[in-house]
């Protein structure tokens, strides 16, 4: 993290405000940046993340589209190739399935397939996260799908500070970048300096230092991991919480070094556990920290079921502070 003038700037804003600031600042900085999506203009999205942008930038730069995710994402790929820096808003992460050909076969590959001649500098903003009682088609965390595809970059911020700095970097990046926002996090407040800053991709952040166990956590799971770490502290276990912040590029070294230091690691991610982000990171840690580990690396992700509507059932499908606490306590032999 860059140095912050702590004494003069203690400003706190929400995650949603941080996103909006990043968009507004980059739109002021670069006239080719524009926003396309469903209900992004007057409505400012159902989450009100974009409120006020239409008034400042006008309808030529904040464009309401038909409910055509494939169509407007495809349009963004072509616009990106020809001089614009479009940002597409996919209201719910579940709807990325409708954009797959545009993102996977077109945006991700055009630079390589053209021998480096064309590039597609675009950002897809979308959401992830369950526990909002939205059932199976509005609650998934499908970011692993994009992590699987060469040519895409994938960002999962967990704080307002990270969200703003990483989104600004994403908009300036010359590649297609997918930016996942936890929809339960929009009202989370945190320190965000008023001054302009960006954060590099591929640099993990240690959210809490510890000695006994490493909790690698992404997006929504960072708050869960921090909560579990506080509970663990009460029974004398010191947990380190590391947030990769970007899944590609991935800061493998920081994750491995933390596991080598603590000798134990649990990987937390809200995507499906099977064939998911937790599998990839656990395998990297298992290989990279092999001689320093006291226990097999554990993975905790979403249950392999469609997200159920009924609240008591839905709450069972994703890791919680309590389940992470229990798993960590067991791993530490307590």
């Amino acid at each position: 993290m860059p140095e912050m003038s702590v004494t003069t700037d203690q400003r706190e804003i929400t995650f949603a405000q941080a996103i909006r600031e990043a968009l507004a600042e980059e739109m002021r900085r670069d006239p080719t940046v524009c926003i396309l999506g469903e209900d992004v203009a007057e409505a400012g999205t159902p989450f009100k993340v974009l409120a006020g942008l239409l008034e400042e930038f006008g309808k030529d730069r904040v464009l309401d589209t038909p409910i055509s995710e494939a169509g407007f994402t495809g349009l963004a790929v072509g616009a990106a190739m020809t001089g614009m820096r479009p940002i597409v808003d996919i209201m719910f992460g579940d709807f990325i399935t409708l954009t797959m050909d545009q993102m996977v076969n077109q945006a991700a590959k055009v630079h390589y397939m053209s021998g480096g001649h064309w590039k597609a500098p675009m950002v897809m903003r979308t959401t992830l996260g369950a526990t909002r009682r939205s059932a199976a088609q509005h609650s998934q965390s499908l970011h692993a799908w994009f992590c699987h595809v060469p040519g895409l970059k994938v960002i999962l911020p967990s704080t307002p500070y990270d969200a703003k700095g990483l989104l600004k970097t994403a908009i300036r990046d010359d590649n297609p970048v997918v930016f996942f926002e936890d929809k339960m996090m929009y009202k989370l407040k945190g320190h965000v300096p008023a001054a302009d800053y960006t954060l590099p991709l591929g640099v993990a952040d240690v959210k809490r230092e510890g000695e006994d166990i490493t909790l690698v956590a992404t997006s929504s799971m960072v708050q869960v991991a921090l909560g579990a770490a506080a509970m663990l502290e009460e029974i004398g276990i010191s947990a380190e919480v590391v947030d990769p912040r970007t899944l590609w590029p991935l800061d493998e070294n920081t994750l491995i070094q933390s596991a080598r230091k603590t000798s134990r690691a649990i990987v937390l991610d809200e995507g499906y556990e099977r064939y998911g982000v937790t599998a990839e990171i656990a395998s990297l840690i298992a290989a990279g920290a092999f001689y320093d580990l006291d226990a097999p690396v554990k993975r905790m992700g979403a249950m392999h079921v469609p997200i159920p509507f009924s609240p008591p059932l839905e709450d069972m499908t994703v890791p919680t502070e309590q389940t992470v606490f229990e798993a960590a306590r067991k791993m530490c032999g307590r």
Binding site: T32, C34, D60, A70, G71, T73, G74, L75, A76, V77, G78, A79, A80, M81, T82, G83, M84, P86, D101, Q102, N105, Q106, V110
Partner: peptide, 16 residues
């Protein structure tokens, strides 16, 4: 596969 791309190029042409 290129229908979106062609339409996006036209979008740029108009915006720029």
């Amino acid at each position: 596969g290129s229908a979106g791309i062609a339409t996006g190029a036209a979008f740029s042409a108009k915006r720029l």
